[in-house]
Structure formats: C-alpha cells, structure tokens
Amino acid sequence: MSKLPAGIGYTTTQLNVHMLRPLFADSGLLRCEGVVLHLGRTIATAEARVVGAENGKLYAHATTTCAILTPRPAGPPLNRRAPTAAATAATTGARAAQAR
C-alpha cells in the first residue's frame, strides 16, 4: 500500500534498523506497525515497530527517509542551454581549422 499517487516513484535515501531482542520459535505472534510521519513533495519519512502481539514487547524498530521521484515533463533536458554566439563561432572556427 502506498500513499503516493499512481505514477510517482520513490527511493530510499536513509534506513535505520534497531533490533532490540532476539526472536525464538516460541516468541509467539508478532505484529508490525508502520506509519508515515511526513509526506512532502520531495521527501517522505516513516517509522515501523515489531511488537509481540500477546505481550506488547518491542523487538525492533526502524525509520526511513525516502526521496519522492516525480516524472519530468516531456521535452528537451532541463539542464541544456542554447549555445551562445561566441561558443558557436569558436566551435565553427575549430572545425574549419581541422578541415584545412
């Protein structure tokens, strides 16, 4: 289940896991509880806890920070700039010199 709209991705930027006590075959039923703490435009944070369903003991807890990946609009790359007249002249001059 995700709180993000369809087509929006994410990747983990930080993950911290703390294991507090060992688990054994007779540890009983466990429950994992997770909650989103913050969901912004570019960053999200969440936390989770693993607790004993019958005794309420905390076995592990974790936090994560994720980068939200929104699709870029179609078209030319955003970091490209049109060449300046000086750059075009320098490139043309260099090509002409190579041709000689």
Results as ranks from 00 to 15, higher is better:
Met1Gly: 15
Ser2Phe: 03
Ser2Asp: 07
Lys3Pro: 02
Pro5Gln: 08
Pro5Asn: 12
Ala6Ser: 14
Ala6Phe: 03
Ala6His: 12
Gly7Phe: 04
Gly7Tyr: 06
Tyr10Asn: 01
Tyr10Pro: 01
Tyr10Phe: 15
Thr11Arg: 08
Thr12His: 05
Thr13Asp: 03
Thr13Trp: 02
Asn16His: 08
Asn16Met: 12
Asn16Trp: 00
Val17Ser: 06
Val17Asp: 00
Val17Trp: 04
Val17Leu: 15
Met19Glu: 05
Met19Asn: 07
Leu20His: 10
Pro22Tyr: 14
Leu23Asn: 02
Ala25Cys: 01
Gly28Asn: 13
Gly28Tyr: 07
Arg31Glu: 11
Arg31Ser: 12
Glu33Leu: 11
Gly34Val: 13
Gly34Pro: 01
Val35Phe: 07
Leu37Arg: 14
His38Gly: 01
Gly40Gln: 04
Arg41Gln: 13
Thr42Ala: 14
Thr42Phe: 03
Thr42Val: 13
Ile43Glu: 02
Ala46Ile: 05
Arg49Ser: 10
Arg49Asn: 03
Val50Asn: 02
Val51Gln: 05
Val51Pro: 04
Gly52Pro: 05
Gly52Trp: 00
Gly52His: 03
Ala53Gly: 05
Glu54Met: 07
Gly56Asp: 15
Gly56Val: 01
Tyr59Ile: 08
His61Leu: 11
Ala62Tyr: 04
Thr64Leu: 09
Ala67Leu: 15
Ala67His: 05
Ala67Glu: 01
Leu69Gln: 12
Pro71His: 04
Arg72Gly: 00
Pro73Met: 01
Ala74Trp: 00
Pro76Asp: 00
Pro77Ala: 11
Arg80Tyr: 05
Pro83Thr: 13
Thr84Lys: 00
Ala85Met: 03
Ala86Gln: 08
Ala87His: 07
Thr88Arg: 11
Thr88Ala: 08
Ala90Gln: 11
Ala90Glu: 11
Arg95Ala: 15
Arg95Cys: 10
Ala97Arg: 13
Gln98Arg: 11
Arg100Leu: 10
